[in-house]
């Protein structure tokens, strides 16, 4: 299947909007699913898009850019992989073969953009010192406009050059290469799990890790059900901790509802 010009524009637009949203509104930040699904709709195969989006979502789980660090751009991997899978008919492995390396390389665009922002920032300070406040604000407005290119450019290059290239590459690719990528796809979510555990009080509450594992591995409870059990445990711990401490808290409860 050949992509039309309109399809290529729409796919690039999804990549641009995804990045712009991630750095501004953050309505769909880390939502890799939606990137796969929307791309699937554009290429006429939402089922594949959803499946690839879900796979990538699980792969990226817990891999978060904290405190300004950069992370592999899994959402664009989903966009590229869905496009490649739909256009070449070679399935998800072919999509992964192109999508994953680009997602890894995408980190560099992010780093370059943050360095570029540094130049803007020095300009802004200089303008404020001269008393040109409005000009400083205008320079700040440059940042959100061009950030989306960090995702849009690699996606555009891949969807234009990718499909024909992929078939050529796949012909030469040994079996272990694609099998290895599929295996890696199964293990990579472990990186996210490890990162999550690094942020959580594992030493204090490891027992709940065990509860979740047993419910899923031995009893096959779906994740929503396990989240409900976790919510119940969380509520009990919140209640007992709040009661155990001073009785002075309780007047203002604004934050509890979040």
């Amino acid at each position: 299947m050949e992509l039309s010009v309109i399809q290529i524009i729409l796919i690039t637009l999804i990549a641009y909007l995804k990045m712009t949203d991630t750095v501004t509104l953050q309505i769909a930040a880390f939502n890799t699913l939606i990137c796969g699904w929307l791309t699937g709709l554009v290429v006429g195969d939402p089922e594949t898009g959803l499946y690839i989006g879900a796979t990538m979502q699980l792969m990226s789980m817990g891999v978060v850019a904290v405190g300004g660090s950069s992370m592999p751009d899994y959402p664009i991997a989903a966009i590229i992989a869905t496009t490649i899978a739909a256009t070449t008919g070679q399935g998800m492995e072919a999509g992964l073969a192109i999508g994953l390396p680009v997602a890894m390389l995408g980190v560099n665009f992010d780093v370059i953009y943050k360095i570029f922002n540094g130049f803007l920032m020095r300009k802004e300070i200089a303008l404020i010192e001269e008393g040109k406040f409005q000009s400083a604000l205008n320079v700040i407005k440059i940042s959100p406009v061009f950030y989306g290119l960090c995702s849009a450019i690699p996606v555009l290059v891949c969807v234009v050059a990718g499909p024909s290239l992929v078939n050529t590459i796949l012909d030469f690719m040994p079996a272990w290469f694609t099998t290895g990528l599929t295996i890696a796809g199964g293990v990579l979510p472990g990186v996210g799990m490890a990162m999550l555990l690094m942020y959580m009080p594992v030493n204090k509450y490891w027992s709940f890790l065990l509860v979740g594992f047993v419910l899923a591995a031995y009893l096959s409870v779906p994740v929503l059900g396990i989240a409900a059990v976790g919510l119940a445990a969380a509520y009990e711990i919140y209640k007992s901790k709040m009661n155990a401490g001073t009785a002075s808290v309780g007047a203002a409860g604004g934050l509890e509802d979040e």
Binding site: M193, M200, W206, L209, L210, L231, Y235, I237, M242
Partner: peptide, 22 residues
Amino acid sequence: VFTEACSVLGLTVVGSLIATVV
């Protein structure tokens, strides 16, 4: 306390994810 309670929810879900996702 709220963060700690949330962590308990998070750990339970992560435990199930290790079993199903990895």
